[in-house]
Design a protein around this nucleic acid. Structure first.
Length: 562
RNA sequence: UGGGGAGUGGUCGAGUUGGCUAAGACGUCUGACUCUGGAUCAGAAGGUCGCGGGUUCGAAUCCUGCCUCCCCAGCCA
């Protein structure tokens, strides 16, 4: 992102930072980090954290690292590392050469653990996982001390080295911190620091047989990188005393952790586990399905990073759980796309119109504006001929008073072309409308009547002979309920999945200028919405995703009728 | 039930040294304009600041009871 684009908004985190800046707590430094675990794809919730961390650093002329928290080789994969790097960069941030991995610090963490053992603050415990759970006690009952808690330093050192050497099977022993089994904060009841995992790590291969737990590792990572403000989500609030304890026992550099509420969005879910289920069970076509709130999904859907950043800026940062209306995301999307998108005409559900008084073999080239929001975008030329397609929704045989598009006997404008009047409705044996017979007024070429007469509506259209046949994929919300997790007894969140979230229209008629546009190309189909070219496009057939509809007051009226 | 957090119009969210009619945004509803029923512009409605006491000339802001919601009992992060 361009270096400063300063966030003008303020929040409680910035207030804390400004106080620290004034008091000189970190010698005027501001150094944050975005610390994802590479066990899945990033989503819009991560974007909030990314914008907060990178944005905060930029605002105070500090630095922000990208650091992978890769402490659990069982769940983590290189594929995720690659996708996360790509996504953070795509959102618009840069970390120079500060790409770090927790696994880079494994040796140092091990040494720190040895240091704790030597000072009698950590011990090797042979309890089984079940026993550890039992000994931990409950929310209201204090735990009991492990029988292995008072092993000698020598024995602990020996055992820990042998754990590292791979002498013991998975789950047979752990290294634990010796804190307080009666603490009301469960995190302080002798937490596990290392577990034995005979698993290959994406980056360290088979070097290690013990891997650090998040709680042990995370604070150290921040300390090692000399992070000033460790921004994380609310659920880690009562882990903070544990990080503090580790850092204090070790006597090393101490960042300040600040917690904020994670993002929730209406009409969607926001957990890697649920995304995985949606993908695995085929509710969507993959992690980058345009209905997914993953960064990859939003990108394929046609979002530009600017709109995501704006969104993250506008939602604010606070400590209370909340759910942002997805309408705000769509507002930011439209605002951004309206400014940048070239316009085209495309007919999604074609209805044939024959202009009876227009010459059979004539083709005219008419000029159209590329983007009314941006004169520099210039103009283009569109072919017009006797047979055209219009949107089926733009004609009604018996229109209600609110409807002011085409109807029998009524005159409307074809955008950038002519006024036409509907003379006759042609139906098939089943009574389905198959074709409209219209008359045009040659004097209205370009779309204006010399006599000053007005029409109520302007329709988009595509010349039948010149049309590009293509596919359009229309997306609706993935969930029917504002809060998908709110369910009837006996069902789960998946019962709220919208069965009609995808509609494929395969006989769309589009303006020929669209031919050859590459995947990722974003434009507006006039009066319909913003669309982008999908990677599924082939040389045979183009495929468009509908990113979002235009605001549509007619659709709103119709909804109210129902 | 132990510990840790949070409660401001439909949704986010300012406000936090107590003091003009409690910002702003999205949403909703009007109207203007319009060769996209888009965009834009103008305007409106909507709040017992979780609840009850108290302090004060004056409280969303301070004190005090209570209520509600979220998180924690992985060798996940």
């Amino acid at each position: 992102m361009q270096e400063s684009e300063p966030l003008k908004s303020t929040n409680f985190i910035h207030e804390i930072i400004e106080k620290d800046l004034q008091s000189g707590k970190y010698q005027g430094r501001v150094h944050t980090r975005f610390p994802p675990e590479p066990n899945g794809y990033l989503h819009i919730g991560h974007a909030k954290s990314i914008c907060l961390n990178f944005g905060t650093a930029a605002k105070y002329h500090g630095l922000c690292n990208l650091r992978f928290d890769d402490t659990n080789p069982i769940k983590e994969e290189q594929e995720y590392i690659d996708s996360i790097i790509q996504d953070v960069r795509w959102i618009g941030f840069d970390w120079d050469d500060r790409l770090y991995f927790a696994s880079d610090y494994f040796d140092q963490m091990f040494d720190y653990a040895v240091q704790l053992i030597k000072s009698g603050k950590a011990y090797v415990c042979d309890l089984t996982p079940e026993e550890i759970r039992d000994y931990r006690g409950t929310l209201t009952k204090p735990g009991k001390e492990s029988p292995y808690r008072n092993r000698s330093v020598e024995e602990n050192l020996d055992l820990f080295q042998r754990m590292r050497a791979g002498e013991f099977p998975d789950g047979s022993r752990v290294l634990r911190a010796k804190i307080d089994m009666a603490s009301p904060n469960l995190n302080l009841r002798d937490p596990v620091m290392y577990r034995i995992l005979h698993a290959a790590h994406p980056r360290t291969g088979d070097k290690w047989r013990v891997y650090p737990m998040y709680d042990w590792a995370h604070g150290l990572e921040d300390s090692i990188e000399r992070i000033t403000h460790s921004i994380c989500t609310l659920e880690f609030e009562d882990h903070r005393p544990l990080y503090d304890w580790y850092l204090d026992q070790l006597g090393i550099y101490h960042p300040q952790q600040i917690e904020f509420a994670r993002l929730n969005l209406s009409y969607t879910v926001m957990s890697k586990r649920k995304f995985l289920e949606l993908v695995k069970d085929g509710y969507v076509r993959g992690w980058d399905d345009p209905r997914m709130p993953t960064i990859a999904g939003l990108r394929r859907r046609g979002y530009a990073p600017e709109s995501i950043r704006t969104f993250c800026d506008r939602i604010g940062v606070a400590k209370g759980d909340s759910t942002v209306d997805i309408a705000l995301l769509e507002y930011c999307l439209r605002e951004d796309l309206n400014k940048r998108s070239p316009r085209f005409m495309a007919v999604l559900r074609p209805l044939k119109v024959i202009i009876e008084n227009y010459p059979e073999d004539k083709t005219e080239m008419l000029e159209a504006v590329n983007n009314p929001e941006n004169p520099e975008a210039g103009t283009r030329i569109i072919p017009f001929s006797r047979i055209i397609y219009i949107e089926r929704d733009d004609f009604m045989e018996n229109p209600p008073k609110q409807f002011y598009r085409l109807a029998p006997g009524r005159e409307v404008r074809l955008r950038y072309a002519y006024f036409i009047t509907c003379r006759e409705v042609v139906k098939d044996a089943n009574g389905q409308i198959v074709e409209l017979r219209c008359l045009y007024d040659p004097a209205t070429r370009g779309g204006d009547a010399p006599d000053g007469r007005k029409v109520k509506a302007t329709l988009h259209w595509v010349s039948a002979f010149h049309a590009l046949n293509s596919e359009a994929r229309l997306y609706e919300k993935l969930f029917l309920k504002e809060n998908p997790n709110e369910v009837e007894e006996g069902t789960d969140w998946k019962s709220n999945i919208n069965p009609n979230s995808l509609e494929i229209l395969s006989s769309c008629k589009m303006e020929p200028a669209l031919k050859g546009k590459n995947p990722g190309f974003i434009c507006q189909f006039e009066r319909l919405g913003y669309f982008c070219v999908d990677p599924d496009t082939t040389s045979e057939k183009m495929v468009f995703n509908r990113t979002v509809t235009l605001r549509d007051t007619w659709a709103k009226l119709q909804k109210q009728e129902k």
